[in-house]
Nucleic acid binder design. Sequence first.
DNA 1: TAGATACTTGACTATTTTAGTCAGGTTTAT
DNA 2: ATAAACCTGACTAAAATAGTCAAGTATCTA
Lengths: 141, 141
Amino acid sequence: MKLTSKGRYAVMALVDLAKFNDINPVSLRDISLRQGISLDYLEQIFSKLRKKAIVQSVRGNQGGYVLNKKANEIKLTNIFDAVDEKVKTVQCKKESKKGCNGKLTKCLTHNLWDELENHINDFFEKKSLEDLIKDNIERRI
Amino acid sequence: MKLTSKGRYAVMALVDLAKFNDINPVSLRDISLRQGISLDYLEQIFSKLRKKAIVQSVRGNQGGYVLNKKANEIKLTNIFDAVDEKVKTVQCKKESKKGCNGKLTKCLTHNLWDELENHINDFFEKKSLEDLIKDNIERRI
DNA sequence: TAGATACTTGACTATTTTAGTCAGGTTTAT
DNA sequence: ATAAACCTGACTAAAATAGTCAAGTATCTA
Ligand code: FES
Ligand code: FES
């Protein structure tokens, strides 16, 4: 099980943005330089974040992006959802009544993976951008 | 983030094996048929489980595999470890003092992913094969 | 109003990982 | 002897990932 760069970058970029949010729109170029993320890749990511109303764009010279909600209202769940980073532990289709083995009953481990999925999603539900920023200031990394 | 088939199958096969463990060695062919997993793939998986002493093999006609420990002593962690299904949330090398951005400090989100990794591993630490079997009997799926 | 900055979009691609398959063994009960 | 079942390593097709690239459009500032 691993986290993809897309999800990792999305959160990283938003933390960066949130730190500078009060003053001016933050340009992707700046985030790219500070965090070492490809500019083109960031553009893909922010396009998705914008469509899900997590950020707002300001076009033109001196433009950039601004948070569209308060930092404590943006949960990791929202971010991951926006960039299609989903937690997927079961093999079978959620809706289908068939198991992953093609049989009509769920497989021996289906419930386990379901529990795991909930366990992970709980973590994402609880963490907000604000938490991350606080954490960064406290630890001074 | 998703769970791979290898990890899923490893656990599924072991639950199946554990259910029949008292009587005779269980052949991979039977597990393959019951759980709908490719026999060749199962062989790869069990080879690893054997090397980590989670199962024992019985060669020859009427042979198969047997659990090498009690079901309550086999945690998910052990299984995942054996088949190299690892949880990897950080990008940077664990040992290296460099961050994922190549800089000397850890990135803004490093601590977050570390927490996440622990959160997930906790789940795997707590669940044993025995828990899974009980769960199956209770729910009768 | 020209030019620079920065957002916007969509298509394309190299690399890596996954999820197996395949072929050829060896061991042992009957 | 022979069949069942373990054992091993190499190979591969398909999918996912992590980007790159190209061609825009909008807006501020000089
Ligand atoms: S994971 Fe849902 S049936 Fe196997
Ligand atoms: S994940 Fe460890 S430094 Fe970024």
